[in-house]
Write a protein that binds this DNA or RNA. Sequence first.
DNA 1: ATCATAGTTAGCCACATGGCTAAGTATGAT
DNA 2: ATCATACTTAGCCATGTGGCTAACTATGAT
Lengths: 113, 113
Amino acid sequence: MAKYDSDLSLLFHALSDPTRRALLTRLAAGPAPVTELAAPTGLRLPTVMRHLSVLEEAGLIATSKDGRVRSCAIVPEALAPVRTWLDEQRNIWESRLDRLDSYVMKIMEERAK
Amino acid sequence: MAKYDSDLSLLFHALSDPTRRALLTRLAAGPAPVTELAAPTGLRLPTVMRHLSVLEEAGLIATSKDGRVRSCAIVPEALAPVRTWLDEQRNIWESRLDRLDSYVMKIMEERAK
DNA sequence: ATCATAGTTAGCCACATGGCTAAGTATGAT
DNA sequence: ATCATACTTAGCCATGTGGCTAACTATGAT
């Protein structure tokens, strides 16, 4: 249960679809209305709408409606938690390498006796 | 179709589950057999096995069997494509932000409420 | 040879996901 | 007032996902 119990799960899930990543990349060039976003995907509007909803619920994009046009824009800081998690993982791994290193050193010193 | 048509999709999908991220974090401390990995999750063995399969198919871990024990270990460089993608996006997104498009800012402020 | 341990495989279940069509709503143009 | 545009909602379908139990295999210990 509570499959997406954190921002991180929502974010990673949103990013796991190629269509959604393509939408993000397109939006990086600037805001765009839904129909314009849908065009290059080859998908129907409702399908694209749902992809956009996933992106919005993950906080990766923000939308606003002006007249009958809904404009979508990227939320640049939304990727921060992903970066943080990646950095943490790297740090843990490196500290493990350090420990392994000192362990090896210890053994080598032991043998040097 | 071809939902996970790239490494990136496989990776993001693998990372989108809290249990799998927890497994990775545990494995960052060093290799471990399946049963030991399963213990803290509160999940049954077959369930954990499948999570491990997803991680392995994404290339995030590697496993090997010694006797009846299967040992799982992290593949640290597997996260590289994710980092790369993230860096690319950040570069695009930030250069976009540098232009300070007032329309984007307006939407972001709207959503911040 | 027997038993315990550590996976492994098969299969069931409820729900989520990604695609669609069809029909509805709201707004700009004529 | 009418019509086209731009979503929006509802709902169908096939497949995927994450959990489980039960039963099986393989290996180490006695």
